[in-house]
Write a protein that binds this DNA or RNA. Structure first.
Lengths: 327, 327
DNA sequence: TTCTGTATATCAATCGTTTATCATTTTAAG
DNA sequence: CTTAAAATGATAAACGATTGATATACAGAA
């Protein structure tokens, strides 16, 4: 049915050895042979069986991409960028949604391993490191600390928190609240946003309130009730910094419902700068994460690591404030 | 390094044949053998090599999922649901973003084929059918007509258009516009929304305007300028039906900018009912697509078709109006 | 005792590649 | 004309599974 390398060899009047050499650019090959093989391949509509190739090479050109969420715009954005960078380098994406479930994350790691992926890109997962130690597959983490990982890529969360605080204070805010650090046992890079934010608040003598969120809020993307609680319990609040744009968009809704004008009465700064940030009214001021560069770096690290090269253990990329209409 | 079936056989004191039989539930097997193999597998931390399995079986348990966009909330939602349904049935997802580019779609089809996927789920792609005819892989299309496909799944676009028109007219609108049919040569199921909408308008004697959009708007998700043009060129407009919630959200922004109150001065109905629909102020009235069921159906059709079963050629699922705050 | 069903073993081919050897032929340079 | 380098061939062993064929035990039933 589907043509094999043998068929190509026969059609081109050569042996599989030569054809394989041409396919993999190894050894001495004449132009005429190259041409004959190209013709035969076209004629037979031949495409190498990647499964057989992967078996022989003990590794595929597939990247296992593990994320905790897909519908969340941040991850949609992330997946899109990783896919694109992977495509450029000839890698395919095996998409794994752990849904924040330890056991699914574990299972997906096993699945990646038994599918002999070239490497794994792990987004802010949560399981302990031990699941990776057996693997001889490069693991690149994004927005996640992982002792045993091959390399990690983060944005400058700490600086992001500082920038947000400085901006809000410069806008005249005196009662700030930060919403979004997730309540879990595992420390995450994103927690640094809170640290940076608080540091500036302390420094400037501005009151600061930290509101942690629960994991199921992250899953359901539902923060409205919580935000309403904050704004009624702490009516003096005049500036909010949220850990992502979804929370910021909901803060906007709640303010509207409560009759608090934005940015007049209260100012909001989000994080991520995903598409929703410019789809709200007013549009969100937010901290831009360099998603393309993050994805590019991650894929590049994976590529190099899978070829046995030594790679940077940790890469931190800068965030930038995008001023729109909520400050 | 990684344990193979041979290692398991040796450890269990059995042959690979028996171990394989146990793994695949074939032939006569005693409980004691089953136990011995289970123990050996645990001890060696064995997982079958899926690559080898796929090579032998001439098919993997991977589904090629081809979409034109990932960041677009509708597709993020779709991908999330397909992944979840696939996971339940033991399939993995090879994520392919065609970015509306014919040649990428073609290439991804080839890639899926050379990776011996169990089947392809194709979302509203655009290339001609001929690319599929050579394939002996089931192709399930979603929101896409495809003569040579195995099966297709759609929502009831026609009825959706009708529901939207009826609702807007019932709300007192007399000058309606529909935005979002994409200007391309290939007819798509989504075009039926416009048909249904227009039909009711004609029937009720309400003025109707059809505004087609360009593909690059879909890619960039940027409709603001166009919408502003519509509302200034046709100031009598008092009801808008959009082909997705992104357009509706932007209509909301434009109305705000133009000082047109929603739903007071103008009413809006979106389509899809993705997360953004409830993140705007006011929240969007929209037509809900049963995404979970669509994904479930698609995966199920693929599963059955890949096992050689006969499947329904076309499945149409109902849409429902979700009334929120823009009508 | 013979038959039948259950449970395993042994052996080997197969899936479609890659690759190591070793051998052979062609080509070009000296 | 030699000789080395370049180009290809022939063969076969992997990679890690599945599977068919054939054989061999050992039950319990007839």
């Amino acid at each position: 049915m589907m043509a094999t390398i043998k068929d190509v060899a026969k059609e081109a009047g050569l042996t599989v050895t030569t054809v394989s050499r041409i396919l993999n650019n190894r050894g001495y090959i004449s132009d005429s042979a190259r041409q004959k093989v190209a013709d035969a391949m076209k004629k037979l509509n031949y495409r190498p069986n990647e499964v057989a190739r992967s078996l022989q090479n003990r590794s595929s050109n597939i990247i296992g991409l593990i994320v905790p969420h897909i519908r969340h715009p941040y991850f949609a954005e992330a997946i899109s960028n990783v896919e694109n960078e992977a495509y450029k380098k000839g890698y395919k994406i095996l998409l794994c949604n752990s849904q924040c479930m330890d056991e699914r994350e574990r299972e997906y790691i096993e699945i990646c391993s038994s599918n002999r992926v070239a490497g794994i890109i792990l987004f802010s997962g949560q399981i302990a490191v031990d699941a990776f130690v057996k693997l001889d597959v490069p693991v690149i983490t994004i927005e996640r600390f992982l002792d045993n990982g091959t390399a990690s890529v983060e944005c400058d969360n700490y600086e992001g928190g500082k920038i947000a605080a400085r901006k809000l204070i410069a806008c005249g805010c005196r009662h700030l609240v930060h919403v979004g650090s997730v309540n879990r046992n595992l420390p995450m890079p994103a927690d640094l946003r809170s640290r940076g934010f608080q540091e500036i608040c302390d420094q400037e003598g501005v009151s600061f309130l930290e509101m942690v969120t629960e994991e199921d809020q992250f899953n359901s993307m539902n923060y409205a009730k919580m935000l309403e609680g904050i704004l009624t319990d702490y009516p003096e609040t005049d500036g909010i910094f949220t850990n992502n744009d979804i929370i910021a968009a909901q803060a906007l809704q709640v303010c509207h419902r409560l009759g608090m004008s934005v940015p007049g009465r209260l100012k909001i700064i989000g994080f991520d700068d995903v598409s929703i940030a410019s789809l709200t009214t007013p549009m969100l001021t937010t901290l831009h994460q360099p998603m393309k560069e993050i994805a590019e770096t991650a894929v590049d690290l994976l590529d190099r690591a899978s070829k046995g090269k030594l790679v940077a253990r940790r890469t931190v990329l800068p965030v930038t404030l995008i001023e729109r209409e909520t400050t």
